[in-house]
């Protein structure tokens, strides 16, 4: 599509739950330091695709996949690859903010500790501050780091989860509907934060809200149910976001984004 560096790439990806083919034959690329949005109607496999990128689907007992997912050119499903290591480099932020029932400070520190942090208290303080600043939350919480993460507002909790994700310095952050539980202003704050984060990270976001995809992303993948009985999801169009939302090539994309779908 252009000369951007490819971080993640799927090749003929199929994902099954038992005998059910949830997504089929997905081929697309995620570019470094760009925000890629995955949009499409409910049940078309957006979250399944997103969770494939850091092997979260394996946590579903009946799930299996075919094809390849390359992370910096390496197949993350290769038997020699440690899924925990994959998830350290490819972090995830979920729809509902899910801070640990611990202090704001511990929410950040905990991830660092289980990832082998062995430094001093002041080094840890610095890392916690860095992560909270990176998530545009520091100024709001610096005087109450020992309070519970759950005492924060929904938007702040989501930024705390983002701070927790970036504390361990992943390369890619996957976001599954990160703003759908937030009010419009908190949503816009998260979107501005994403724009800042993309300077240092690569972001893939799944969203029901195509206006959000339009506002925040650089690239957009449109997913739709296709195939026999229209039961399996696939990427029907992938392009720069400004093209998808002004002159999409696939009529199904046009119908979806203009609200004429279904």
């Amino acid at each position: 599509m252009d000369n951007n560096h490819v971080v993640l790439e799927t090749k003929n990806l199929n994902v099954f739950y038992g005998n059910f083919l949830a997504i089929k034959d997905v081929n697309f690329q995620v570019f470094r330091n760009q925000i890629t949005a995955i949009i499409g109607p409910s049940g078309c496999g957006k979250s399944t695709l997103l969770r494939s990128f850091n092997r979260m689907n394996e946590l579903v007992p009946s799930a299996r996949s075919e094809g390849k997912i390359l992370f910096n050119g390496e197949d993350i499903y290769d038997p020699t690859i440690d899924p925990v290591e994959v998830r350290r480099k490819i972090g995830m932020v979920f729809q509902k903010p899910n801070p640990f029932p611990k202090s704001i400070y511990e929410n950040i520190a905990w991830g660092l500790k289980i990832n082998g942090f062995r430094g001093s208290k002041s080094e840890m303080d610095d890392l916690v501050e860095q992560a909270l600043r990176g998530a545009a939350l520091w100024d709001e919480v610096k005087d109450k780091l020992d309070q519970s993460g759950l005492s924060l507002s929904g938007g702040q909790q989501q930024r705390l989860c983002i701070a927790r994700a970036i504390a361990i310095k992943p390369e890619v952050i996957l976001m599954d509907e990160p703003a759908s539980a937030l009010d419009p202003i908190a949503t816009l704050k998260i979107e501005d934060l994403m724009r800042e984060l993309k300077e240092n990270y690569t972001i893939v976001i799944v969203t029901h809200n195509m206006q959000e995809a339009a506002r925040v992303s650089d690239y957009t993948a449109m997913m739709m149910l296709t195939g026999e009985g229209e039961r399996s999801g696939t990427v029907i169009e992938f392009d720069r976001t400004n093209i998808i939302f002004t002159r999409p090539k696939d009529k199904r994309t046009e119908d979806y984004i203009t609200g004429r779908f279904g």
């Binding site: 206006q211 339009a214 506002r215 976001t241 400004n242 939302f245 002004t246």
Partner: peptide, 12 residues
């Protein structure tokens, strides 16, 4: 004109 249309489509 293109820039305006893109901005309208993407930034609502």
């Amino acid at each position: 004109e293109n820039a305006i249309i893109t901005l309208m489509a993407t930034q609502q």
